[in-house]
Amino acid sequence: MFTQETTHLGTSFKQYFEIVPALTEELKREAYRVRHSVYCEDLQFEFSRPDKFEIDEYDAHSLHLLIRSIHNDAFIGCTRIIRPPSNSNDRRLPFEKTCAQTLDYSIIDPSKLPEDKIGEVSRLAVIAAFRRRKGEKNHPINISKEDFGTGPMMRFPYIPLGLYIGTIELARLYDIRVLFMLTEERLASHFSRLGAQLESIGAPIEHHGLRFPSMVEISNIVSSMRPIFRPLYREIAQDIKAGMSRVNQQSINPVPISTHTPSHAST
């Protein structure tokens, strides 16, 4: 199913891309710029802003992540993990509000989970120049059924998987145990190729297209990750660790992270 190139995913990824945790205001603004380009200008899901930053009320209590093109020396994609606000009476995550009538609380009730152990994946986006494939113009990220395939048109989806894996590692470092997401069916199915299935937690809703509420446990996806993706995971984990170290060296208040190492880190 994979060519020889994909057996060295970590090495190949590092030649072209870098995952950067957006822990400073300057880096967060880079994420807001990417989001404006995708969500406001390309897809027009949100109103265009004069300052070209797409920002909302959730950003103040979110963890942000960027992917940088080495060759272009530019940030080309982003995502974030929204955490429950600590300074509000309403500590629901966005998907809980959007899917209030469709969630299956017999599967999981987010309100009964420790607030510091949960988060929601949001604003996953890649700029237009890096997602110009047939049928992908109207989607915020580039991935299709041809990815992971065989034959002359086979291509590996480094950018979306880099953002997925980076999100998982960022959540792990901040000791987030459960990630929720409201996503297209095609992205949910491709996310599962890492080795851990997303669990559906309710009926789909219409939200810029049909979206499915899902959840994944970080420990399960890390331990169940397919061996072929582990070199890629290690490289991305090193990127995030290096990014955090740079910020900690410049900051009086260090970034708090978990010191637990994934069970497959040395494989």
Results as ranks from 00 to 15, higher is better:
A100S: 13
A100K: 00
Q101S: 15
T102I: 00
L103H: 01
L103N: 01
Y105F: 15
S106L: 11
S106G: 03
S106F: 10
S106A: 12
I107F: 06
I107S: 04
I107E: 00
I108F: 10
I108Y: 07
P110I: 09
P110A: 09
S111Q: 13
S111F: 10
S111G: 05
K112G: 04
K112F: 09
K112P: 10
K112C: 10
K112D: 08
P114L: 12
P114M: 09
E115L: 14
E115N: 10
D116I: 06
D116M: 04
K117N: 13
K117M: 12
K117I: 08
G119F: 06
E120R: 01
E120C: 04
S122W: 07
S122I: 10
R123L: 04
R123W: 07
R123I: 07
R123C: 10
L124A: 04
L124P: 01
L124Y: 09
A125C: 02
V126I: 15
I127V: 15
I127R: 12
A128H: 15
A128M: 11
A128Q: 14
A128L: 13
A129H: 04
A129L: 12
F130V: 09
F130W: 15
R131G: 02
R131Q: 08
R131S: 03
R132T: 09
R132F: 06
R133H: 14
K134C: 04
G135P: 04
E136I: 13
E136L: 15
E136A: 14
E136F: 11
K137I: 05
K137L: 05
K137G: 13
K137Q: 11
N138W: 06
N138K: 02
H139L: 11
H139S: 02
P140E: 00
P140H: 03
I141C: 00
I141K: 00
N142Y: 10
N142E: 01
N142L: 07
S144A: 04
S144E: 01
S144M: 12
K145L: 09
E146D: 14
E146T: 02
D147Y: 05
F148R: 06
F148Y: 12
T150I: 14
G151K: 02
P152T: 07
M153E: 11
M153K: 12
M154A: 15
M154H: 14
R155K: 14
F156R: 03
F156C: 08
Y158H: 14
I159C: 06
P160G: 02
P160D: 04
L161Y: 15
G162F: 02
G162Y: 10
L163K: 13
L163H: 13
L163D: 09
Y164R: 10
I165A: 09
I165M: 03
I168E: 07
I168C: 09
E169K: 09
E169L: 09
L170K: 05
A171G: 03
A171D: 00
A171Y: 01
R172M: 06
R172C: 00
L173K: 13
L173W: 06
I176S: 02
